[in-house]
């Protein structure tokens, strides 16, 4: 099975551990990733904060490439990227005038027809049964808190993915791996996202709240499907501990890490050794 792949800047930058994990894991499940040719950044928060048109044009450029190359489904493992791509795609699909305008701006015809999937949706497409069959090392010791953050489920009208207040799709997958999924409070609260660099206070505060609730509900790890969530909870965890004088020592895994490990992949293979907090 082949699927288009839009890695986005984070996965080709400081979150390259996520890319490794996704590639190894999906490879083992027989999913071939076809990377989008010459993709550009989705624009992220900066674009929609400073120029609404650019926030459509940058994703439109990527969608135009996908259409040109006949890619009708594309995985964007970063929720920020997938949300921006989906939003732009829907806006394009809905408006003739916008399609014309954007085709001019990106110098290529674009209709917004490409389906954009997050990582969980790709696992859902592969199917629980197939994943379950591939499990060789059930994660019986794992008590995971599934953390969705913001952009996997919001804005709900556009993303139409899971219950935006109490999502359970990650839990379903985790349970198929033999792990326990704990119920907790802040599954969809924000960790501060892209504010890591310019507003550290906020990020540490929110990350602390999340890590505290996770621990209080008896989890021994957190599962994420977002590079920003990983940065804020993993890389920043030491700062959180320093600032609040606590010890969390909570390992943070990508969803693909756990699926991969259950299928027998080593942590090193998937870049788990690059995480800051070691289990």
């Amino acid at each position: 099975m082949q699927i288009g792949y839009y890695p986005g800047c984070a996965l080709h930058g400081s979150s390259n551990d996520y890319e490794r994990s996704v590639r190894v894991c999906l490879g083992r499940l027989g999913m071939e990733l076809r990377e989008l040719d010459d993709w550009v950044c989705c624009g992220a928060t900066a674009a929609h904060s400073l120029n609404a048109k650019l926030a459509t044009a940058l994703p439109a450029r990527n969608l135009a490439i996908a259409e040109r190359d006949g890619i009708d489904q594309m995985l964007a493992p970063c929720p920020m990227c997938s949300m921006e791509l989906i939003k732009a795609g829907q806006a394009l699909a809905a408006s003739d005038a916008l399609r014309r305008e954007m085709s001019e701006i990106v110098e290529q015809k674009v209709s917004g027809a490409t389906g954009v999937l997050n990582l969980i949706q790709v696992f859902q497409q592969i199917g629980l049964e197939r994943i379950q069959k591939a499990v060789v090392q059930p994660l019986s010791q794992t008590k995971a808190a599934c953390y969705y953050g913001c952009l996997l489920v919001r804005p709900p009208e556009q993303l139409r993915f899971d219950d935006c207040e109490n999502p359970t799709s990650m839990e379903t997958i985790i349970k198929a791996l033999g792990a326990e999924a704990i119920d907790w409070n802040y599954k969809t609260e924000c960790c501060g996202a892209g504010m890591t660099m310019c507003n550290e206070d906020t990020v540490l505060d929110l990350a602390h709240k999340i890590l505290t609730d996770v621990a209080a509900h008896g989890a021994n790890c957190v599962v994420v499907a977002c590079p920003m969530c990983h940065v804020n909870l993993d890389m920043k965890q030491a700062d959180v501990e320093r600032r609040y004088g606590v010890t969390h020592r909570m390992p943070i895994y990508y969803l693909s890490d756990l699926v991969g490990m259950a299928m027998g992949a080593s942590g090193a293979e998937m870049g788990v050794d690059r995480h800051y907090v070691v289990a």
């Binding site: 953050g149 804005p155 504010m195």
Partner: peptide, 9 residues
């Protein structure tokens, strides 16, 4: 604002 979309949702 962290653009988490909670308000809109």
């Amino acid at each position: 604002c962290v653009s988490c979309q909670t308000c809109s949702a």
